[in-house]
């Protein structure tokens, strides 16, 4: 057992190291991509009629006249120490601007995940249990419809039914840190539901497929021949062996909840990272755009790492070696 613990730690360390390398490569790509965007901050705020001198003056002030390599190194050096620079727009530190918004986004993602993951896995298990029945088809069609519709469309439909016709939730998610939990939850509900509709289908279909994939296994037949009920066959015998693919698809969707929320946040005017991201791209506020991208990348890498480790832990062969 101790050998296994050691192996697991070594594995985690290895994945973390790989994650850091990936993050470094991503930072390079982000920096290059952002700098290749047409136009820059100086031109954007001064407009078409700006004089050459005025643009150059602002560039000098922001350090945009420095060579690219030097700018990258100083950005990376700062980021490593937790200093993402200052916003071009309002001269406030990026970390301060992002901090609260990132927490808001995490809160939204957390609420959405708390609804979507149990819902998706539960629906997937039921769909596998009643496969090819009316329930299975309805669940499949419904989740596919919701994943195929544009997010803003889903958002407006939810607003129509849950904020306008039946005013249960607020259509504007005006949250701030001083709100109490329940008010905050109530204001977050509509964007969270929209996100739930977007991510449920994928997770549900994977749960269903992973379970059905196992139903031809001899040990499932054995369970049936022991007189085990269909529900217990699925939940007790199939599900524990189907966890690895399910965990992976959940991780992928959780990452999406954090990085893919841009449109939803804009629709509900939710003060999260996505909102800030879109606003910053518009005015070429490079330090914020870069910091956002880096946070998104780190989220992806961390969640995938977690999924890897959890899938390994779900395998008794690896958990209990001979």
């Amino acid at each position: 057992m101790s050998g296994f613990g050691f192996d697991l730690l070594r594995l985690i360390a290895k994945r973390l190291g790989l994650g850091l390398i990936t993050l470094f490569v991503v930072s390079l790509i982000i920096f290059l991509a952002v700098n290749l965007l047409p136009g820059d901050f100086a031109q954007e705020i001064l407009g078409q009629g700006a004089t050459e001198e005025a643009v150059a003056a602002i560039r000098r002030e922001l350090g945009l006249d420095q060579p690219m390599v030097q700018r990258y190194l100083s950005w990376l050096g700062g980021a490593l120490q937790g200093d993402f620079g200052t916003s071009f727009g309002n001269k406030r530190p990026v970390a301060e601007l992002l901090g609260q918004r990132f927490l808001n986004t995490l809160f939204l993602a957390g609420v959405a995940a708390a609804i979507a993951v149990p819902l998706a896995v539960g629906l997937g298990v039921l769909a596998a249990l009643y496969r090819n029945s009316v329930f299975d088809r309805v669940a499949n069609v419904a989740t596919l419809t919701s994943i195929s519709s544009p997010e803003f469309f889903l958002a407006y439909i939810l607003i129509l039914f849950l904020a306008v016709v039946n005013p249960v939730f607020d259509s504007l998610s005006n949250v701030s840190p001083d709100l109490d939990f329940w008010t905050r939850l109530q204001r977050t509900m509509l964007p969270a539901l929209t996100l739930t509709l977007v991510v449920t289908a994928h997770m549900m279909r994977m749960t269903r497929a992973a379970i059905i994939n196992l139903l031809a296994s001899p040990y499932i037949e054995m369970a049936r021949l022991k007189g085990v009920s269909p529900a217990r066959v699925i939940v007790h015998h199939a599900l524990p062996n189907a966890l690895a693919p399910i965990i992976n698809v959940i991780a992928l969707n959780l990452a999406y909840l954090i990085t893919g929320v841009v449109v939803v946040e804009v629709v509900f005017v939710y003060p999260g990272v996505g909102q800030l991201f879109v606003d910053s791209v518009k005015i070429r506020d490079i330090p914020i755009v870069q910091a956002c991208c880096l946070i998104f990348a780190a989220t992806y890498i961390l969640l995938n790492l977690t999924a890897d480790v959890l899938s390994i832990l779900s395998n008794p062969r690896l958990r209990h070696p001979k």
Binding site: Y219, E221, M222, R224, G227, N241
Partner: peptide, 20 residues
Amino acid sequence: ILGRRIAYVAQSAAASFNPA
């Protein structure tokens, strides 16, 4: 009745025991 009054022993025990 299955398992209680009639039981089954399969060809490959390695495949017929649930690995989990």
